[in-house]
């Protein structure tokens, strides 16, 4: 128990308490009666504390603003991350749609070409290329089950690609015009000079051989298939003459021909299944 004395609460402390209680109660009564006597007291405290209150409130508001900005930054970062994900997905979708659009255009061109053409044809997609350096061949996703046979001509809308050399039920192997083992009877469109176009290793160009020294061949001349040999129909574009050389004996000419088809960008090809009038007649000479 608390007691008044040497070891307990002293008299002056009790007096202090009583004075302060008395003051508090007086203030209570004065304030409840709306007396003006408390106004000076309130004013004094306001003057004393208001500058510090302003500083603290300003600091607090700055702090809460900073917290809010940090929160917004975190939200923004998370949103950006999310949007980046969406952007990646949209970019992928865009690429896919562009690819589909390009494929659609190519197929549309092929379809129009096939509708205008007099030959029965089948469209095949390229599914592979020869990995050795000894042959320049491609693999097409159509085979004997689609009616494709050995030696059938392979073309695109732009011109001659090559010919079928092997078939399986669902795959065909096609030798390209660039291969040295390939040969096609050809003619110069302008002068009707005839020769044979053959491929060559490690070159984007073919060679038109067996041109006589008197033939009229010029750079820029268009080279077409002549239709001789029984494989390729007449009039297919082979390429353009880029260089004319006179052979050593001076009796023959040789022309360098740039193929009409860009073999590096081949994606779909057309296989001609039959030549009307001639039927399908594979040649032993391979021309």
């Amino acid at each position: 128990m608390m007691g008044i004395g040497r070891n307990g609460i002293q008299k002056k402390e009790i007096i202090t308490l009583l004075i302060l209680i008395f003051l508090s109660v007086n203030l209570l009564i004065a304030d409840s009666l709306k007396r003006e006597s408390t106004v000076w007291l309130k004013g004094g405290f306001f003057v004393l504390f208001s500058p510090f209150q302003k500083i603290v409130m300003r600091s607090y508001r700055s702090f809460t603003d900073l917290c809010l900005q940090l929160k917004e930054f975190r939200n923004w970062r998370s949103e950006t991350y999310h949007l980046h994900g969406q952007l990646d997905a949209l970019v992928q979708e865009n690429i896919r749609l562009r690819e589909e659009n390009l494929a659609y255009r190519r197929l549309q061109q092929l379809t129009e070409f096939m509708q205008q053409s007099e030959y029965p044809m089948v469209v095949g997609k390229i599914i592979g290329r020869d990995t050795t350096s000894w042959a320049i061949t491609i693999f097409v996703d159509k085979g004997s089950s689609s009616g494709i046979k050995k030696d059938m001509p392979v073309i695109t809308v732009k011109g001659v690609v090559g010919k079928v050399i092997e078939t399986a039920p669902v795959v065909s192997k096609v030798i390209l015009m660039q291969d040295p083992g390939f040969a096609i009877s050809a003619l110069i469109q302008r002068s009707r000079a005839q020769g044979v176009v053959v491929g060559q290793f490690h070159s984007d160009f073919c060679i038109m051989k067996y041109l006589s020294g008197e033939d009229d061949v010029r750079t820029g001349d268009i080279v077409l298939s002549s239709g001789e040999g029984g494989i390729f129909p007449k009039g297919l574009s082979i390429g353009v003459v880029t260089l004319v050389r006179i052979k050593e004996n001076g009796l023959a000419l040789e022309a360098e021909v740039k193929p009409s088809v860009n073999f590096d960008r081949l994606e779909e090809v057309i296989v001609i299944k039959e030549i009307p009038g001639k039927g399908y007649a594979p040649s032993k000479k391979g021309m």
């Binding site: 609460i9 002293q10 002056k12 402390e13 202090t16 308490l17 302060l20 209680i21 003051l23 508090s24 109660v25 007086n26 203030l27 209570l28 009564i29 004065a30 304030d31 409840s32 408390t38 007291l41 309130k42 405290f45 306001f46 504390f49």
Partner: peptide
């Protein structure tokens, strides 16, 4: 005890002034 009582009074009084309640209530 005296100081604690005085600080109690002053702290309460300041609280009263800045609150909307009766002046002297917190002081008491």
């Amino acid at each position: 005890i005296s100081r604690a009582t005085l600080f109690g009074f002053l702290g309460g009084l300041a609280e009263d002034i800045f609150s909307g309640f009766l002046l002297g209530s917190n002081a008491l």
